[in-house]
């Protein structure tokens, strides 16, 4: 038994963890199928094959899953614990949050040697996440706007009428396409930062998204 125990804290509730892994699954499926929809290979051997048809079907089902997942997370940010709260995503809005952000940024930029002990979300991460949620919204709106064009005049097409006013058809495609690359860039950042902070903070950062628990020296409040 070490002299100085670390206390375990329940941070990520089950719905948050399910949401995280649903997003991972949906984004991977959407990314792979979307890539082939954007620049397909001639998979079809005969005209009675349905390769593009199935790719698009999987893409659309995953799109619904992803949209439901994102909306659920927004709802959970209103009813979940304080670490899941929407307030976590605007650290720059409070003076305390800004102080934490500066500390974290100084550490990331090698200006500070002291590892900041974060609790719940890392303030730099939530800043990235709020931008990511903006990107998710853009991807969902442009994606469903493109999808709804098969049934002009339908409920979805009419509800997304504002999208057709903002974007041209090809503009929707380009935005939706570039969005995936931005999400790809985010994933590199996200995985790297999580591994880095897991190593530096010794707080079980990586396992926390499976178990829900993080560890730190201070007692739970």
């Amino acid at each position: 038994m070490p002299k100085q125990p670390k206390y375990k804290h329940y941070i990520w509730e089950l719905p948050v963890r399910i949401n995280h892994w649903t997003n991972v699954f949906a984004i991977v499926v959407l990314g792979v199928t979307g890539f082939f929809i954007g620049s397909p290979y001639s998979f079809g051997g005969s005209a009675s094959d349905f390769t593009m048809g199935w790719l698009r079907f999987i893409h659309f089902v995953a799109a619904y899953l992803f949209a439901v997942s994102v909306v659920s997370r927004v709802i959970w940010s209103l009813i979940g614990n304080k670490y899941a709260s929407w307030r976590e995503f605007f650290p720059f809005a409070t003076s305390n949050g800004r102080k934490k952000m500066v500390k974290m940024l100084r550490y990331y930029m090698f200006l500070d040697r002291k590892v900041p002990e974060t609790f719940g979300h890392n303030p730099m991460a939530t800043t990235a996440y709020i931008m990511l949620f903006g990107l998710y919204t853009l991807m969902i709106l442009t994606g469903f706007a493109l999808y709804a064009q098969h049934a002009p005049g339908g409920l979805m097409y009419r509800s997304l009428g504002f999208m057709y006013a903002i974007f041209s058809s090809q503009g929707l495609r380009l935005t939706h396409h570039l969005g995936l690359w931005l999400i790809g860039g985010f994933i590199i950042n996200h995985v790297y930062s999580a591994v880095l902070m897991d190593i530096k903070e010794h707080d079980g950062e990586i396992s926390s998204i499976f178990s829900g628990y993080k560890y730190r020296i201070k007692k739970p409040e």
Binding site: L174, W181, G184, I188
Partner: peptide, 13 residues
């Protein structure tokens, strides 16, 4: 778009 996207992801990596 893909060249730009690939550059972006490679740059981040």
């Amino acid at each position: 778009a893909d060249k730009i996207g690939l550059g972006l992801v490679a740059g981040a990596a």
